[in-house]
């Protein structure tokens, strides 16, 4: 049984596998969406003090683009897609029609970025659903550009009451000509993670 403070390496391995499969599907959906090949870095399943999560992802003060969705269905959770502003601009150059480019982060452009997050989230959660036999899907995404720590910490608040440690699953994407290194972060509380580990260990 997964418990805060005594998570076994084998349990983290199970969760890494979840992140791996989720990310694999997410990358495939991005390839289709962008028409470009995506490479995945080895996913991280890490447990760290909740106040240190932001700095394990990047510079806490850097302004980044964050797309967030609440995870709904058989389990509560939160999923976040983070990219640098530079990558967000490159992403827009790929997905927008030429006549719509060069408008910075207009409301329309922000919704195009949110839509990219939505595609990633659906693929990621679809794969996790299948793997765990749970029905998980993202609520409509919202998007903002702000300091990395302000974004990440606000999401972590949602799971912070029951523990001072956070277990999060993180995947980095890379794409060759566009330097994208987007991060996908999935967080849920310990009771839900324990449920996932139990289901997967039985299989």
């Amino acid at each position: 049984m997964l418990e805060e403070g005594q998570v076994l390496e084998s349990e983290l391995d199970v969760l890494r596998e979840v992140a791996n499969i989720g990310s694999g599907h997410a990358a495939a959906s991005m390839e289709k969406w962008l028409g470009k090949e995506m490479a995945l870095k080895v996913p991280v399943a890490a447990m760290v003090p909740i106040e240190d999560v932001a700095e394990t992802i990047g510079d806490p003060l850097e302004t980044v683009m964050g797309v967030y969705s609440r995870v709904q269905g058989d389990m509560e959770g939160h999923i976040l897609y983070l990219i640098s502003l530079e990558d967000a601009r490159e992403l827009l150059d790929i997905i927008l029609d030429p006549e719509d480019r060069g408008q910075g982060f207009s409301p329309n452009n922000l919704s195009a970025i949110a839509e990219t997050g939505n595609i990633l989230f659906n693929a990621y959660l679809g794969a996790v659903s299948e793997l765990c036999g749970l029905e998980l899907y993202p609520a409509p995404p919202t998007c903002t550009a702000d300091m990395l720590a302000a974004i990440v910490n606000t999401i972590l608040l949602e799971v912070s009451d029951s523990g001072d440690l956070a277990l999060y699953l993180k995947t980095e994407f890379e794409e060759e000509d566009f330097t994208s290194t987007g991060n996908v972060l999935f967080v849920t509380d310990f009771a839900n993670l324990a449920r996932m580990v139990d289901i997967l260990e039985e299989e």
Binding site: A54, M147, A150, I151, N153
Partner: peptide
């Protein structure tokens, strides 16, 4: 996040990055 600091040393600066916190 979640911490608390008090100081009375001249020149000290307390900092934090806040979203919904």
């Amino acid at each position: 996040m979640g911490e608390l600091e008090v100081s009375d040393r001249a020149g000290d600066i307390l900092t934090a990055i806040l979203g919904s916190c």
